[in-house]
Protein backbone atom coordinates (compact mmCIF):
# COMPACT_ATOMS: atom_id res chain seq x y z
CA UNK A 1 0.00 0.00 0.00
CA UNK A 2 1.38 3.40 -1.01
CA UNK A 3 2.35 5.75 1.74
CA UNK A 4 -0.18 8.50 2.33
CA UNK A 5 0.97 11.72 0.80
CA UNK A 6 0.26 14.62 3.19
CA UNK A 7 -2.25 17.28 2.21
CA UNK A 8 -0.73 20.57 3.22
CA UNK A 9 -2.82 23.07 5.06
CA UNK A 10 -3.44 26.53 3.61
CA UNK A 11 -2.82 29.17 6.27
CA UNK A 12 -5.41 31.86 5.95
CA UNK A 13 -6.70 34.74 8.02
CA UNK A 14 -9.58 34.36 10.46
CA UNK A 15 -12.08 37.21 10.20
CA UNK A 16 -15.69 37.21 11.32
CA UNK A 17 -15.65 33.45 11.73
CA UNK A 18 -14.49 32.86 8.14
CA UNK A 19 -11.07 32.04 6.74
CA UNK A 20 -10.36 34.49 3.95
CA UNK A 21 -7.08 35.02 2.16
CA UNK A 22 -5.58 38.44 2.48
CA UNK A 23 -7.36 40.88 0.18
CA UNK A 24 -3.88 41.91 -0.89
CA UNK A 25 -3.11 38.43 -2.19
CA UNK A 26 0.14 38.57 -0.24
CA UNK A 27 1.63 35.62 1.58
CA UNK A 28 4.73 35.02 3.63
CA UNK A 29 6.64 31.82 4.13
CA UNK A 30 6.62 29.99 7.38
CA UNK A 31 9.51 27.66 7.98
CA UNK A 32 10.07 25.09 10.62
CA UNK A 33 13.01 25.47 12.96
CA UNK A 34 14.99 23.16 10.71
CA UNK A 35 14.30 25.25 7.64
CA UNK A 36 11.58 23.22 5.99
CA UNK A 37 8.83 25.24 4.30
CA UNK A 38 5.67 24.73 6.29
CA UNK A 39 3.28 27.05 4.58
CA UNK A 40 2.68 30.17 2.58
CA UNK A 41 0.67 32.05 5.19
CA UNK A 42 -1.62 34.91 4.34
CA UNK A 43 0.04 38.25 4.99
CA UNK A 44 -2.64 40.56 6.26
CA UNK A 45 -2.90 44.09 4.93
CA UNK A 46 -4.28 47.25 6.50
CA UNK A 47 -7.53 46.54 4.68
CA UNK A 48 -7.71 43.12 6.28
CA UNK A 49 -7.19 44.86 9.60
CA UNK A 50 -10.05 47.22 8.74
CA UNK A 51 -12.31 44.25 7.96
CA UNK A 52 -11.25 42.48 11.13
CA UNK A 53 -12.03 45.56 13.24
CA UNK A 54 -15.40 45.82 11.54
CA UNK A 55 -16.12 42.17 12.33
CA UNK A 56 -14.98 42.63 15.89
CA UNK A 57 -17.14 45.73 16.34
CA UNK A 58 -20.11 43.95 14.87
CA UNK A 59 -19.75 41.06 17.28
CA UNK A 60 -18.97 43.08 20.38
CA UNK A 61 -22.41 44.08 21.68
CA UNK A 62 -23.76 40.58 21.25
CA UNK A 63 -20.77 38.97 22.95
CA UNK A 64 -20.86 41.43 25.82
CA UNK A 65 -24.61 40.95 26.02
CA UNK A 66 -24.26 37.24 26.76
CA UNK A 67 -24.42 36.33 30.39
CA UNK A 68 -21.05 36.01 32.08
CA UNK A 69 -21.93 32.39 32.78
CA UNK A 70 -22.44 31.78 29.09
CA UNK A 71 -19.16 33.42 28.11
CA UNK A 72 -17.41 31.26 30.67
CA UNK A 73 -18.97 28.17 29.14
CA UNK A 74 -18.01 29.20 25.63
CA UNK A 75 -14.43 29.71 26.74
CA UNK A 76 -14.41 26.42 28.55
CA UNK A 77 -15.64 24.73 25.38
CA UNK A 78 -12.60 26.16 23.57
CA UNK A 79 -10.38 24.44 26.13
CA UNK A 80 -12.20 21.19 25.53
CA UNK A 81 -11.57 21.38 21.81
CA UNK A 82 -7.94 22.34 22.41
CA UNK A 83 -7.54 19.34 24.63
CA UNK A 84 -8.79 17.11 21.83
CA UNK A 85 -6.30 18.71 19.46
CA UNK A 86 -3.38 18.61 21.83
CA UNK A 87 -1.33 16.56 19.44
CA UNK A 88 -1.68 19.16 16.74
CA UNK A 89 -0.69 22.03 19.02
CA UNK A 90 2.24 20.03 20.29
CA UNK A 91 3.44 19.27 16.80
CA UNK A 92 3.16 22.93 15.85
CA UNK A 93 5.36 23.91 18.79
CA UNK A 94 7.77 21.11 17.93
CA UNK A 95 8.03 22.37 14.37
CA UNK A 96 8.98 25.69 15.90
CA UNK A 97 11.91 23.93 17.49
CA UNK A 98 10.64 23.05 20.94
CA UNK A 99 11.44 19.69 22.44
CA UNK A 100 8.57 17.27 22.85
CA UNK A 101 8.67 17.85 26.56
CA UNK A 102 8.57 21.66 26.49
CA UNK A 103 5.98 21.62 23.71
CA UNK A 104 3.71 19.35 25.70
CA UNK A 105 4.23 21.45 28.76
CA UNK A 106 3.39 24.69 26.97
CA UNK A 107 0.24 23.18 25.49
CA UNK A 108 -0.85 21.88 28.88
CA UNK A 109 -0.20 25.22 30.51
CA UNK A 110 -1.98 27.02 27.71
CA UNK A 111 -5.10 24.91 28.10
CA UNK A 112 -4.99 25.34 31.85
CA UNK A 113 -4.53 29.08 31.44
CA UNK A 114 -7.57 29.24 29.21
CA UNK A 115 -9.65 27.24 31.66
CA UNK A 116 -8.46 29.52 34.44
CA UNK A 117 -9.67 32.58 32.56
CA UNK A 118 -12.93 30.85 31.59
CA UNK A 119 -13.68 30.61 35.27
CA UNK A 120 -13.10 34.32 35.74
CA UNK A 121 -15.98 35.23 33.43
CA UNK A 122 -18.53 35.38 36.22
CA UNK A 123 -16.19 36.31 39.05
CA UNK A 124 -14.12 39.25 37.92
CA UNK A 125 -16.98 41.68 38.57
CA UNK A 126 -17.03 40.67 42.18
CA UNK A 127 -13.29 41.14 42.54
CA UNK A 128 -13.06 44.43 40.68
CA UNK A 129 -16.47 45.94 41.36
CA UNK A 130 -17.45 47.82 44.50
CA UNK A 131 -20.40 49.18 46.38
CA UNK A 132 -19.44 52.63 47.54
CA UNK A 133 -20.52 54.18 50.82
CA UNK A 134 -21.18 57.71 49.65
CA UNK A 135 -22.10 60.42 52.13
CA UNK A 136 -25.74 60.79 51.19
CA UNK A 137 -28.97 58.90 50.52
CA UNK A 138 -27.71 57.17 47.38
CA UNK A 139 -27.06 53.61 46.39
CA UNK A 140 -23.76 53.77 44.53
CA UNK A 141 -21.99 50.92 42.86
CA UNK A 142 -19.14 50.43 40.44
CA UNK A 143 -18.91 47.54 38.06
CA UNK A 144 -16.66 46.67 35.15
CA UNK A 145 -17.68 46.61 31.53
CA UNK A 146 -15.68 45.61 28.47
CA UNK A 147 -13.89 48.47 26.78
CA UNK A 148 -14.91 47.33 23.28
CA UNK A 149 -12.63 46.28 20.45
CA UNK A 150 -9.08 45.35 21.38
CA UNK A 151 -6.20 44.75 19.04
CA UNK A 152 -3.75 42.27 20.55
CA UNK A 153 -0.16 42.15 19.40
CA UNK A 154 0.46 38.53 20.19
CA UNK A 155 3.81 37.72 21.83
CA UNK A 156 6.30 35.73 19.81
CA UNK A 157 7.43 33.93 22.90
CA UNK A 158 5.96 31.82 24.34
CA UNK A 159 4.05 31.40 21.12
CA UNK A 160 0.97 29.55 22.31
CA UNK A 161 0.90 30.38 26.01
CA UNK A 162 1.60 34.02 25.21
CA UNK A 163 -1.20 34.19 22.68
CA UNK A 164 -3.73 32.56 25.01
CA UNK A 165 -2.55 34.55 28.04
CA UNK A 166 -3.14 37.81 26.20
CA UNK A 167 -6.29 36.83 24.32
CA UNK A 168 -8.26 35.23 27.14
CA UNK A 169 -8.31 38.28 29.46
CA UNK A 170 -9.45 40.42 26.54
CA UNK A 171 -12.46 38.39 25.47
CA UNK A 172 -13.56 36.82 28.74
CA UNK A 173 -15.27 40.04 29.86
CA UNK A 174 -17.03 40.69 26.55
CA UNK A 175 -14.46 42.53 24.49
CA UNK A 176 -13.83 41.34 20.97
CA UNK A 177 -10.31 40.96 19.67
CA UNK A 178 -8.23 41.36 16.60
CA UNK A 179 -5.01 39.42 17.07
CA UNK A 180 -1.96 40.43 15.10
CA UNK A 181 0.65 37.74 14.96
CA UNK A 182 3.72 37.13 12.87
CA UNK A 183 6.64 34.87 12.30
CA UNK A 184 6.58 31.31 13.51
CA UNK A 185 4.11 32.15 16.25
CA UNK A 186 1.52 32.57 13.50
CA UNK A 187 1.43 28.78 13.28
CA UNK A 188 0.04 28.57 16.78
CA UNK A 189 -2.46 31.35 16.06
CA UNK A 190 -3.79 29.72 12.91
CA UNK A 191 -4.20 26.46 14.76
CA UNK A 192 -6.10 28.27 17.47
CA UNK A 193 -8.31 29.86 14.81
CA UNK A 194 -9.38 26.40 13.71
CA UNK A 195 -10.25 25.54 17.28
CA UNK A 196 -12.24 28.75 17.69
CA UNK A 197 -14.08 28.12 14.43
CA UNK A 198 -15.17 24.70 15.60
CA UNK A 199 -16.14 25.68 19.13
CA UNK A 200 -18.98 27.98 20.21
CA UNK A 201 -17.18 31.31 19.96
CA UNK A 202 -19.36 33.57 17.81
CA UNK A 203 -17.85 34.79 14.58
CA UNK A 204 -16.02 38.09 14.98
CA UNK A 205 -15.28 37.71 18.68
CA UNK A 206 -11.73 36.68 17.84
CA UNK A 207 -10.15 37.65 14.54
CA UNK A 208 -6.64 36.58 13.70
CA UNK A 209 -4.35 38.37 11.30
CA UNK A 210 -1.08 36.75 10.36
CA UNK A 211 1.61 38.83 8.79
CA UNK A 212 3.92 41.60 9.87
CA UNK A 213 2.97 43.08 13.24
CA UNK A 214 5.17 46.10 12.58
CA UNK A 215 3.13 46.81 9.48
CA UNK A 216 -0.29 46.21 11.04
CA UNK A 217 0.07 47.83 14.45
CA UNK A 218 0.41 51.44 13.29
CA UNK A 219 -2.92 51.02 11.48
CA UNK A 220 -4.45 49.53 14.58
CA UNK A 221 -3.06 52.28 16.80
CA UNK A 222 -4.45 54.92 14.48
CA UNK A 223 -7.83 53.26 13.94
CA UNK A 224 -10.57 55.42 15.45
CA UNK A 225 -12.89 52.49 16.11
CA UNK A 226 -10.41 50.52 18.16
CA UNK A 227 -10.69 51.08 21.90
CA UNK A 228 -7.53 49.45 23.15
CA UNK A 229 -4.30 47.98 21.88
CA UNK A 230 -2.30 45.40 23.76
CA UNK A 231 1.32 46.01 22.83
CA UNK A 232 2.72 43.20 24.96
CA UNK A 233 3.80 41.35 21.83
CA UNK A 234 4.70 44.42 19.81
CA UNK A 235 7.99 44.29 17.94
CA UNK A 236 10.84 46.35 19.36
CA UNK A 237 10.99 48.46 16.26
CA UNK A 238 7.49 49.87 16.64
CA UNK A 239 7.92 53.60 16.20
CA UNK A 240 7.08 56.02 19.01
CA UNK A 241 5.02 58.01 16.53
CA UNK A 242 2.87 55.00 15.83
CA UNK A 243 2.16 54.50 19.51
CA UNK A 244 1.54 58.22 19.95
CA UNK A 245 -1.24 57.97 17.38
CA UNK A 246 -3.21 55.94 19.89
CA UNK A 247 -3.94 59.28 21.55
CA UNK A 248 -6.11 60.34 18.63
CA UNK A 249 -9.06 58.55 20.19
CA UNK A 250 -7.56 58.11 23.65
CA UNK A 251 -6.93 54.39 23.28
CA UNK A 252 -6.07 52.28 26.27
CA UNK A 253 -2.54 51.02 25.67
CA UNK A 254 -1.62 47.90 27.59
CA UNK A 255 1.75 46.28 28.11
CA UNK A 256 2.02 43.28 30.35
CA UNK A 257 3.96 40.16 31.18
CA UNK A 258 3.47 37.99 28.05
CA UNK A 259 2.82 34.84 30.04
CA UNK A 260 1.35 36.35 33.19
CA UNK A 261 -2.12 35.68 34.55
CA UNK A 262 -4.17 37.87 36.80
CA UNK A 263 -7.71 39.18 37.12
CA UNK A 264 -6.09 42.60 36.89
CA UNK A 265 -5.01 41.67 33.39
CA UNK A 266 -8.70 41.30 32.65
CA UNK A 267 -9.09 44.65 34.35
CA UNK A 268 -6.72 46.25 31.88
CA UNK A 269 -9.42 45.85 29.25
CA UNK A 270 -12.33 46.96 31.39
CA UNK A 271 -14.03 50.26 32.00
CA UNK A 272 -15.40 50.98 35.43
CA UNK A 273 -18.94 52.30 35.43
CA UNK A 274 -20.35 53.94 38.53
CA UNK A 275 -24.11 54.25 38.95
CA UNK A 276 -25.87 56.47 41.45
CA UNK A 277 -29.46 56.15 42.52
CA UNK A 278 -31.26 57.90 45.35
CA UNK A 279 -32.63 55.92 48.24
CA UNK A 280 -36.04 57.32 48.99
CA UNK A 281 -39.70 56.45 49.11
Amino acid sequence: MAEHMPVDKTFKLFIGGAFPRSESGRTFQLHSADGKLLANAAKASRKDLREAVKAARGAQAGWAGRTAYNRGQVLYRVAEVMESRKAEFTSVLREMGQTARTARSEVDRSIDRWVWYAGWADKVHQVLGTVNPVAGPYFNFTFPEPTGVVVVASPDDPPLLGLLSRLAPVIVSGNTAVVATGGAAALAAVTLAEVLATSDVPGGVVNILTGDKAELLPWALGHMDVNSVDLTGAPDGLADDAVAAAADNVKRIVRADPAGASPHMIGDFLEMKTVWHPIGR
Binding site: N132, V134, A135, Y138, N140, M272, T274, W276, P278
Partner: peptide, 19 residues
Protein backbone atom coordinates in the same frame (compact mmCIF):
# COMPACT_ATOMS: atom_id res chain seq x y z
CA UNK B 1 -20.26 56.36 30.17
CA UNK B 2 -18.17 56.07 33.30
CA UNK B 3 -20.72 57.67 35.59
CA UNK B 4 -24.45 57.18 35.31
CA UNK B 5 -26.68 59.28 37.48
CA UNK B 6 -30.17 57.86 37.71
CA UNK B 7 -32.79 60.19 39.17
CA UNK B 8 -30.03 62.49 40.31
CA UNK B 9 -27.18 64.36 38.65
CA UNK B 10 -23.75 65.87 39.38
CA UNK B 11 -23.22 64.03 42.64
CA UNK B 12 -19.64 63.42 43.71
CA UNK B 13 -18.11 61.58 46.60
CA UNK B 14 -14.58 60.52 47.49
CA UNK B 15 -15.78 56.93 47.81
CA UNK B 16 -17.30 56.96 44.33
CA UNK B 17 -15.09 56.30 41.30
CA UNK B 18 -15.29 58.95 38.59
CA UNK B 19 -13.90 58.90 35.07
Amino acid sequence: AGVVWANTYNRFDPASPFG
